[in-house]
Amino acid sequence: MNILIIEDEKELAQSMRHFLNQEGYICDVALNFEEAYENIQLHSYDCIVLDIMLPDGSGLDLLQKLKEEHSRAGVIIVSAKNALDDKIKGLNLGADDYLTKPFHLPELSARVKSIIRRRQFEGDKQVVFREIRVYPDEHRVFVNGTELDLTKKEFELLMYLIGNKNRALTREAIAEHLLGDQADMLDSLNFIYTHIKNLRKKIINAGGGDYIKTIYAIGYKFGEK
């Protein structure tokens, strides 16, 4: 899977590349409009992470060019400017998702994964982690063939954890994924704790393994022992 990261802030671009590389994606980085345009002409990408404010142009123009050329790449707009107008404009132009800086890298990773999954063929639309099988579009989860009865948030939590398996995830990153902006305003630790506890219990009760590990002071990690 090829990903193009278009971001004028070098440090941030590198962080993104590093994180997504670890997920097994091949990443190119473009630090300005020109580089980005060149890359788009030369290569074919599955997903493009696009900063709107570039020193020599607007990311929205790039998006328009991509759509004119019927690019098959999914686009995630990343912008410091959480202006509603930009968001609407971007989504209207055909962007698949929108992320506001500062974001959590696992969040970016989850969104990239979701976009790529959505662009794959019908039959592949399931996510499997050992005995856990998830059908994202139908919001159904099976453990050893037994369907789990999960709440909406528990389902989202599981998707997020599987999407970021073997990653240390902070409680804040998880909370923000589940609650969006509202996570900021509430004491979300209790909320996350309860959901993790319930999800773990439901998986174990259905005969699944205990895959959620607590990391001291940080949060959780989902993965094999």
Binding site: E9, E11, L12, S15, M16, H18, F19, A80, K101, P102, F103, H104, L105, P106, A168, T170, A173, I215, I218
Partner: peptide
Amino acid sequence: AILRSKLDIMI
């Protein structure tokens, strides 16, 4: 955003 991304990698 840079700070947060570096911390995300660090942990």
